[in-house]
Design a protein around this nucleic acid. Structure first.
Lengths: 190, 190
DNA sequence: GAAGTTATTGTACATCTGTTCAATAAAAAT
DNA sequence: ATTTTTATTGAACAGATGTACAATAACTTC
């Protein structure tokens, strides 16, 4: 790979991180990030459409980290019966690890793009490991079930974000498990 | 209320709708919307921060419509035992009714703001009507349960969006009901 | 190492942004 | 109806955006 291109990308990524310590993402301009990175503004537009382009590159690295951590089995007692197993705790640990990053992802000003990408990732985890055994369900219905299930976990993340990430990942995991069992109890009261 | 202010808001709202038929929201500039609305650009900044400000005003009207429709009981056979009752079909009907609008809300380029607001609305529906009878749950846990439950419905909406809103609201409602029952079946296989 | 290819640079341009301010027009208060 | 208050306007400003182009520098190929 061309060293010049790599240098451009690295400089811009480094400049973005510097600026994110000073101001919010939506207040960072292309001109500004180029000044810090010592990159010509014209060069910027050769590679990215806007500042979010640089952030998206950063995002892809973070999600790679999530996918990697998910490939490692977290707990031996794999509970395949629930669609929302304690396995999901890895997602909470991941978000906590990159908290500063996810504060931006869930921010009101941030485009939906990153939310969609994260949901897609969680969705693939669920499709790969938890939805195989389901019968009597159409392909299309399975797509909806995956989104339904994955996004319920995203709901936990959003609430976590709203409460400033105060709870421990283990607590969230316990919550999910209890929410799953809750259906059962309610049904028994019929 | 000052007639001049109302005229300004109305002109801008009308101009936004005209422009949305021609191009996507993120490509509409303040200068452009002011030219169409025949409003001085300085006046624009007296009322809004950017183009999204005008869209947000529009959004508030739409959500008002959702809240209104939800106040009307849709079906007499209210199933209080499930947290996700067929009552939710009203949300699907609402989104279908304002499909052109929600195509923008769920778009990748659109800020998370509208998603958060819609989630908050669905969340309030659930808290008001379905989560009262739950016992042995802390206030905080209830907050998470509400986000968890409300966002699972949002997951259906996102999938609907991804599939270009082809299915009927009734079908989605049937799906949700079946997803709820699915837990039951899986557990019996222990 | 020379020749060819490609990324980066500097400059320029029209347009947009966000803000300020005095002048004016429209509404509200008396 | 006159005065007071407030919204809108037009002009001007520094800075940002997105694009274009020729010149130059860096990398690749042979």
């Amino acid at each position: 790979m061309d060293l010049r291109v790599k240098k451009t990308h690295d400089s811009l990524q480094r400049a973005l991180l510097i600026l994110l310590n000073q101001k919010s993402l939506e207040n960072i301009t292309v001109a500004e990030i180029c000044r810090i990175a010592e990159i010509n503004r014209g060069t910027f537009y050769l590679h990215y459409k806007n500042v979010h382009g640089v952030f998206e590159r950063y995002f892809n690295d973070i999600v790679k980290d999530l996918k990697f951590s998910y490939d490692f089995p977290y707990d031996v007692t794999k509970d395949n019966l629930s669609m929302l197993t304690p396995e999901m705790i890895q997602i909470f640990h991941h978000v906590k690890k990159h908290e500063a990053f996810y504060r931006i992802v869930f921010d009101e000003k941030t485009p939906m793009l990153y939310y969609h990408k994260l949901l897609e990732t969680v969705r693939s985890f669920i499709l790969e490991s938890h939805l195989e055994e389901i019968e009597h369900i159409s392909d299309q219905q399975l797509e909806y079930l995956a989104s339904y299930t994955a996004n319920s976990i995203m709901g936990i993340l959003i609430q976590w974000h709203k409460e400033d990430y105060v709870l421990a990942p283990e607590t969230l995991n316990k919550y999910i498990y209890e929410f799953y069992r809750l259906n059962e109890t309610l049904k028994k009261n019929i």
